[in-house]
Amino acid sequence: MVAEDPGALRIEGLRHSAGGRLVLDGVDLTVPRGESVAVTGPSGSGKTTLLMSVLGLVKPDQGAVWVAGRDITRMRGRALAAHRRANLGVVFQFGELLPELSPVENVALAALLAGQDHKRAYASAEDLLRGLGVPADETPTGMLSGGERQRTAVARALITEPAVLLADEPTGSLDRAARDSVADLLFSLPARHGCVLVVVTHDPAVADRADRTLRLDMGHLAEALA
């Protein structure tokens, strides 16, 4: 079965257990293009495992994950890596950037590794950073503030123009002002780029910005109660 909208993310009956414990127990989720979803839940509830399954870094025991029209649980090796590079972008909690490289280089790097032409990669990186309010000069990324670093990480996730953007606690390490600025930016992306956004967060202030908020608990994903 193929999802109607190839740009959407569709998860069907996802089950996964780790260390004898059922982490995901029949999770279903569909997110159409241009929509954002926040996933909340207590620590250890399997939020990150859910993201890793969408990325294809964790093989679920059962179920399907459709990304850009293909079930990635059935894909292997190079085909999976190529599909991930083309269609998925991630923002990690701590940015995970190379501190010695300039922001432009950090952002362009993802495009270069994805096989893009280097001139186009640098031009897009500069455009993206300018649009996100990060100085696109030669300052090493290690010298930037926490908010600027996370915005650079967002730019890096966007440079390959992914259909699905995942963010794992993207504001977890930021102060309030930086948090608001990064969260506003993230949740504006589905409308601006037509992508799907899935954000895993503990922070209700961040989750409130999403079109839908879901709660993962005891392996089940359900609409969060307001």
């Binding site: 190079r78 995970e96 590794l113």
Partner: peptide
């Protein structure tokens, strides 16, 4: 380790 997240995501271990 600094490059690991990006390398894992893009599966470019040759880098």
């Amino acid at each position: 380790a600094e490059l690991a997240p990006l390398a894992v995501q893009t599966d470019r271990r040759g880098v």
